[in-house]
Amino acid sequence: MSLAPSRRPAWLNVLAGAAFLSVAIGAYLGLRVSPPDVNQGDLIRVMYAHVSVAWVSFLAVGVAALAGIAFLWRGRPRMDVISVAGAETALLYGALTIIGGMTYSKPTLNTFWTWDAKLTLTALMVALLAGVFIVRGLIDEPQRRGRVSAVILIVVLASLPLNYLAAEWFRTLHPAKAIDLTGGGVTIDGTMLTILLYNVVAAGLMFVWLLVERVRIGMREVEIDARRVQADGGSGEVVRV
């Protein structure tokens, strides 16, 4: 029994090209166009990659948790697949955030690892996401696996606002947030802000591409599993895709 060949849609290649191109342009803007910072000099260039990746890692957790909630609601395998794809990309971007943060903090704060609230809690987010994958590996039944991982992702999502609040209250070594989400105004140079926001969009585009590719793979896996159940003469549970 062979799977129906799935044609790779042309727009996916366009999306991949656009993602790589915009990340390259973002790097160029950050490395060549951006003026050096008054205090940090050229080190500010690390910030463009670090901050954009950090923001997208939180976005990815949000996508994973929302898809998980959608899976709990209707039980469609596609939602579980999107949730896993979101969690995997969140893991990747979270790891990149930590690497970027360490690169940034060695020259500015003279230490690789500070027990700063944001850095610590990003590390915790990565640990929580790793927990999702450990638990998924232990459950065979797809519906239950999806439900349990969705539940863990909801708890991860609930702990993210505490992450943000903790950064406010613990007042440790992390540089003061330049963009105040509570409406205190922007304390960053206009050109720099434009380049930062461009980099955020580029990192986001890369995230969307990775997500779509991973969902395509995930859907094939669901299909293969369904065929395998049929071939085993099992319960023949119908998998709606």
Partner: peptide, 25 residues
Amino acid sequence: LTANLQARESLLPVLMFPVVVPVLL
């Protein structure tokens, strides 16, 4: 959540400690 899973003894702390860190702090 872990009551029915294998290796629950080691899994429980791995899952719960990252979540309780704000409480602990």
